[in-house]
Every structure is written in C-alpha cells, then in structure tokens.
Design a protein around this nucleic acid. Structure first.
Lengths: 183, 183
DNA sequence: CCCGAATGAGACGTTGACGTCTCATTCGAA
DNA sequence: TTCGAATGAGACGTCAACGTCTCATTCGGG
C-alpha cells in the first residue's frame, strides 16, 4: 500500500525527461498512484523537481563512489562508472536536461562537485597517456552525459537493446565509430 | 522593422530546448519582440512548436543534401554532415528533445525520412569496412544527434569553444577518447 | 478480526499563462 | 515628407493546471 518513493521518482524522471510539460496528474498516473497521493509526498511541482534533483545527485554520487574512479587505468574506471550509473540513467538524463540545476547562472553545488569528479577522471586519463589530449575533459564529461541520456532514451523506445546499454556507450566513447586495424 | 521569422525560430529553439516550460512571453523577449507580435506570426504555442518542427526538418534536410552523404568515404561524408548541420544545431537539439515528433507512438514522417538517410550513411560505412559493425547504425545515429545537441549546449554555456564544435563531435564520434598509437 | 493509516476519487477556489483585442508609436517605402 | 503597415505595450476574459480539501475505500499490522 505504502508508496515506493524511489520508484515514483524514477518514473517521474523517465516521464519528465521526455515530456517536461507533463501534468502532475500525468506524473501520478505514470507512477500508478493518484494525484492526491503524489501531492502528499511532494508538496508541489517544485518540490517534486527538487526531490528529483536530490535523488538523482545522490544516486549519481553513489555510482561515482562505487566506480572507484581513482583506481587502475582510466578507461577501466570509465567502464565501471558507466556500469554503475546504468540504473540511474533516467535520473541522470533528467538532471542534465532540466537546467534548473542552474539557479541564476550559478550551478548547483552538489552537481558541480560530481561534475568535477568525472572531469578529473578524464584529466587523469590524459595525464597518464590513456586518453587523447585534443578533446578537453569538459567536453568528454558532457559527451558522457549526453551519450548516457541518449542511450537511455534509445533503450526506452527500443532502438537499442537494454543489454547493450553499457557496451554501446563504452565502445563509442572510448573507441569511436571508425574501424581500426588493430582492434 | 519586419520580424525575421527564421531568427525568431532559431532563438525560440535555443530557449525551448533548454527550458521547454518557457512562457510565450519569455520566448518573445528572448527573440527581442513583443508577445503580440509573436502571436501575429504564430497563432499559438502549438503553432510555434509545429513551425519549429517544420523549420528544423527543413534545415536538417538541407544539411543532408549539402553533405552529399552518398559520395566518397563514409567518414568524410560524416564530417561534411556535421559541418553542414552546425548552423542548425540548436534546431536539431530541439527536434531531438521535443518528442512531440511522435504523435501517438507514430514518428513524424518527414523526420523518419531524414533519420533513415543518416542511418543509411552509417550502414554504408559499415559495409565498406570504414565503421565498426558492433555498433548498430541506429545507435550511431542517435549518438550523433545526442552529441550534436550536447555540444551545441556546451558551446552555449561556454564549456566548449564555438570554433571546436565540428572537431569535438567528429573526433569523438569517429575516433573515440582513447589514445591509440597510430593516430 | 479490528482499527488506524494510507490511498483514490473527486470537488472547489485560485492562479498564471494563453489568446484576443485596442491603440499609440515607429519603421520604411513612395 | 507622407502614409500605410508593422510593432510594442497593455487590458481583458478564458481556461487548464495547480494546490487543498473531504470522504469513502482499501490495505496491513496487531
């Protein structure tokens, strides 16, 4: 009977990242609950969005921790990160899409911290000669977010098999589309 | 004095792709015109969105034509496509984001046609041994859209230099982040 | 079984964006 | 310069979503 708050948030993220104009009623129906119940758990739309931000940041941070970005070769750390972040891909897509993380040209503090960790991974890879230095860490970071969001959506609409999620992102991001001889 | 319709649409796309809940008044202000004038050119919000769809599809189609995707090596054709699509990156980002291209689980006809052309390019590259075959054309197509949208946004917020737009997308999409010996 | 808590459905007033309209002003061509 | 067309500012009614509330029902622990 009791509402699964996390599940409601995941469903809301999946819906709102694709249709950010969705009604509170639509969000509630998508989560399989009534509008009144949705309001009981989240005082209003703003509160829902803030809860989504906090939950997404929390989940993303957990993925970053679990991936142990500082250990081993940077490409391997990136693989671990993508694997860990997969369950939170929908939330991450919402975070990246919803630019309400910027409150008046100022980035959300929590997000900025996580963003720096990802960026540091790419920088480490460059310093250790594993990543190309002509692609900036900032761009690689943004590209990672973009590919995760894109792939999560592609999986939802059936353009990419769910089992291929990690592989498609990792391989494209690390190796690119071009076929090379030694691979 | 007369309003530049195309410029209004480009501005609206740039705004709405980042804040899809933006008011008609906000759209008008962003375009530097009055709300009344915006309504004179676009009967309402729906009409504006439809105009954005049509304009974006039209611009994207022009880029596809200009890129001559059937000629020469597929990687070169992809480079040309990214170069041609750059001016319409904002519109493309809006198209990909706004999933109103799907009218009841059915994809917009015009968009489906363009989508097929991009997908065909990747398939040709695979058949000719230029692209990897373990990344599906559908995924490469979606990834291209995602990277274009991501990079367009990164440029807007100053995370990527405008001059690097084409390079960052092409190099990441074709070669990936990993540093290889022979490159 | 029983009872309290939580939920779903719906009613209701409020609010903000929408769409239309008017009117003064400004632009640009003749 | 002149005049028509276009624009900007603002007023106004409409409407859909919001947020709150009530009440009957259902779930689940004791």
């Amino acid at each position: 009977m009791t509402v699964d708050r996390d599940q409601v948030l995941r469903t809301a993220a999946a819906l709102l990242s694709r249709k950010s104009t969705a009604t509170m009623d639509e969000v509630a129906r998508a989560a399989g609950i009534g509008r009144a119940t949705l309001h009981r758990h989240f005082a209003g739309r703003d509160a829902l969005v803030r809860a989504l931000e906090n939950f997404g940041i929390e989940q993303f941070e957990a993925a970053l921790d679990a991936a142990r970005l500082d250990e081993g070769p940077a490409p391997d750390a990136l693989r671990r990160l993508i694997a860990e972040v997969e369950p939170a891909a929908g939330l991450l897509a919402f975070l990246v899409t919803e630019n309400q993380l910027f409150e008046g040209d100022q980035m959300n503090e929590g997000w900025a911290r996580l963003d720096a960790r990802v960026s540091a991974l790419f920088r480490r890879g460059q310093e250790q000669g594993e990543f190309r230095i002509d692609l900036t860490p900032a761009w690689l970071t943004e590209a990672l977010y973009g590919l995760i969001g894109t792939c999560a959506w592609a999986v939802q609409v059936g353009r990419v098999a769910a089992n291929d999620f990690q592989y498609m992102i990792v391989e494209l991001l690390l190796g690119g589309a071009r076929r090379s001889v030694e691979k």
